[in-house]
């Protein structure tokens, strides 16, 4: 029997909302590798939120729940919860959130997206696809050390 999913910081419900948000925050483009939302949720939970401050964890979880219940109402014309939105509707919501004139909302999108961008564009295969080869940089750097006179 498959063991139930466990997260360090997020609840299963929060993880589900986040998982549903990730593909539409990042979007798709043929120049970019496919988005693995499961992996990104795990990374955000164990590598990012678990190492963040208590206040930040609280804020991030609040944003996830606000995304589910509040933002569709705030940025959409008819009321649906986030998980009921189509991909197109989700992207419309995220673009409105990103460009909101209300600076608190706009800043909160930056916070929400940052973790997702860290997780996705921080993957070697993704950054390599856009030309930035971190692994090669590391190898190159390991061959050189500047020593003070």
């Amino acid at each position: 029997m498959k063991s139930p999913e466990r997260y360090k910081v997020l609840t299963k419900y929060e993880a589900e909302i986040l998982r549903a948000a990730i593909p539409d925050v990042l979007g798709e483009n043929e120049g970019l590798p496919p988005v693995d939302a499961d992996r990104i949720v795990r990374w955000i939970d164990t590598q990012y939120l678990a190492k963040s401050t208590f206040e930040f964890r609280l804020l991030y979880r609040f944003l996830i729940l606000a995304l589910q219940f509040l933002f569709p109402f705030l940025f959409g014309s008819e009321y649906k919860i986030f998980l009921q939105l189509s991909s197109e509707e989700k992207q419309h919501l995220f673009n409105k959130w990103a460009q909101s004139r209300l600076y608190l909302l706009r800043n909160s999108f930056t916070i929400f997206r940052l973790a997702i961008c860290f997780a996705y564009y921080g993957q070697d295969e993704v950054s390599r696809a856009i030309g930035y080869d971190a692994a090669a940089k590391l190898e190159e750097a390991s061959k050189r050390q500047v020593v003070r006179d």
């Binding site: 979007g27 483009n29 043929e30 120049g31 992207q91 959130w97 990103a98 961008c117 996705y120």
Partner: peptide, 23 residues
Amino acid sequence: PPEVQSNTLPYAGNKHAKLMSQF
């Protein structure tokens, strides 16, 4: 690097991905 700078670009979703694909 891209994971940090991606957050400075506008838009979300496919529009953002298009920008990032031309990073």
